[in-house]
Nucleic acid binder design. Structure first.
Lengths: 344, 344
DNA sequence: CTGAAAGCGCTTACAG
DNA sequence: CTGAAAGCGCTTACAG
């Protein structure tokens, strides 16, 4: 099938390419009714479809954005992408999805390729290790929005969770339920900034309640080391009675460990997870979760980016948009049976 | 930042655009060493980056493909996309992801937009309701691969699960464990073809074992109606003692119901799910699952598509590539306690 | 070994 | 109300 071009349409309809172009762009202001009709019919007859690549070259806009995540298989990422795609679809933008696997080299390559392909902007869950390119893009006023993490001193708009609050909500809830020996496990690799925020929130919540911080209760582990870390934690002289899982993957590791050791939740160990999981409501016991509004975060990021692309403003706002987590109390964080506390 | 173009490089390096182009395309056969050096330096100096849109216009290839799924939030879809993206990345292709939400109108719009953007091919989890476009694309030799479902009579290569086998594996396992009253719940909306295959497999397995088919045991429901359907099922005079959940979403609904009614698995009701879930190993009891090789399926689809794009062959192969599911036995399908069977 | 020229399929002032 | 012409930034025969 040799492609039908605008020139073909013009010839058959006995008008110039300009006029066909006007028609396509719905600039009918000065177009004769019959010209319009003729073009319309010819287009249908030839089954003509405009070549957007040609238009993009001229207009310097591809109505396409790039999204770089660590891994689309992470629930958070897929929710963010879904939201971005929804918002983009409303404005007839498309989204190219890239998995950087927390690998700065891969991230760099994707960024360069995406720019070469002239995407109108990017939303990145940054590895954080390509500060030079981030800066270069910022200087060139290239539209870009970060999600999930902020990066150092670069004033690029970032949409993130209030991570301190996330941990604080969990810890405070434990304390309110009579727990004092509370541990937290976070993930080294993924999400450096979120982890720091979560650990800070954890510490502050304890301080606010005049509970001294036990550094042994704070574990920062690769996902493959969580089982081991838990073992160490529970082998302490005074093991924690409650634990915060810093994200969904860690929660899963915790639950695997719990099952393998026949530990009862919450009797032996109370658990709260940050990030929702598909089984939180029907797991036995149902899981108390600090939920992250992933869809809202992705939506906001897309809105910011499209705004920046379309209005050419907003640049250098350096705004950090923080979303609030929500504590959903279920059974896994219930107060300790033999609590001496008599809170209600 | 006014973009640097090839013309700028050519001027500064004192060569023609042709030569710069040769350089970029690594056609060094006849290029003088110093010319090469000069171009290389100039490119670095100017921080020149080729505009791929311009190249695409000329070469009629965007090194971009489109993927249309129902919803990226479904585990299967995200695994398929991840695989596709991995394979494409190896060949420096990018992938545009679209969510059609099982909506033929949305699907049609995406297909048209993607073609207008000149993507080199598409991988579609088809709604099945746009046979006219599928046919049109097929006739135009537009590279396209279906995943998860085949569509009627169109000879477009399709990569799918052996759905009959999936259900058969589950049913046979139940039977081997002494179960005879076996129900199956499938999803109306999603995956029409897979559902039919699974129900067929279910029936055949029963027939092979000379167990008569009870139509009341076959439920075909929207996801929101699963709870209700389960209730009906278990209220039958002779309720099923074992159940196959036709996909991950249904399995989740089953587990919710089970929890709300304090039904014990497998004692009161044995369960097998088709499609893996994140909690299969540590759910109590651990879940027996018929796993679908989603990543492999996506990989195959991408390989087929890239092959078709690059070699311009394979068209009209009408091949249906079926992948085999795998039964992973855990605790939720254990033999009935009071079984009169004495199979080992 | 390198350059001039045409062309990919559009859009957009500008002229009439 | 419509058309001729230039141009977006590349690639590619072709000539020399």
């Amino acid at each position: 099938m040799k492609a039908v071009t605008m020139a073909d349409v013009a010839r058959l309809a006995n008008v110039s390419k300009s006029t066909v172009s006007q028609y396509l762009n719905k600039r009918f202001d000065y177009m004769g009714e019959d010209t319009k009709k003729r073009i319309e019919e010819t287009i249908r007859e030839l089954d003509y479809r405009p070549n957007i690549v040609a238009r993009s070259l001229k207009q310097k806009s591809t109505t396409t954005i790039g999204v770089i995540v660590a891994n689309i298989l992470h629930t958070f990422s897929s929710q963010v992408i879904r939201a971005i795609e929804d918002i983009c679809h409303e404005s007839d933008f498309h989204v190219i999805v890239c998995n950087a696997d927390d690998n700065p080299v891969k991230e760099r390559k994707y960024i360069e390729m995406l720019r070469a392909k002239q995407v109108d902007g990017m939303i990145i869950l940054p590895t954080g290790d390509n500060v030079d390119i981030y800066n270069e893009m910022f200087d060139e006023k290239y539209p870009i929005v970060f999600v999930d993490r902020t990066v150092g001193e670069i004033p690029i708009p970032s949409v993130i969770l209030n991570n301190e609050m996330a941990a604080d909500l969990g810890v405070q809830h434990f304390i309110d339920n009579g727990y004092k020996k509370i541990g937290i496990i976070t993930n080294v690799i993924r999400n450096i900034t979120p982890r720091r925020g979560r650990v800070n929130g954890y510490k502050k919540a304890l301080e606010n309640n005049k509970i001294s911080i036990n550094e042994q209760y704070i574990k920062n582990l690769e996902i493959g080391k969580v089982q081991e870390g838990l073992k160490d934690l529970l082998a302490l002289e005074e093991p924690p009675e409650a634990i915060i899982a810093g994200n969904d993957l860690i929660l899963i590791e915790v639950l695997k460990y719990v099952k393998s050791k026949n530990i009862r939740i919450p009797t032996d160990l109370a658990v709260i997870g940050i990030d929702d999981v598909s089984f939180s409501t029907f797991y036995e016991p149902a899981l108390t979760i600090v939920e992250q509004p992933a869809y809202e975060i992705g939506k906001k990021a897309a809105e910011l980016l499209l705004y920046e692309i379309q209005k050419k403003e907003l640049h250098g706002e350096n705004a950090i948009y923080q979303f609030e987590p929500k504590l959903v109390v279920r059974e896994s964080s219930k107060r300790i049976g033999n609590s001496v506390h008599t809170i209600e």
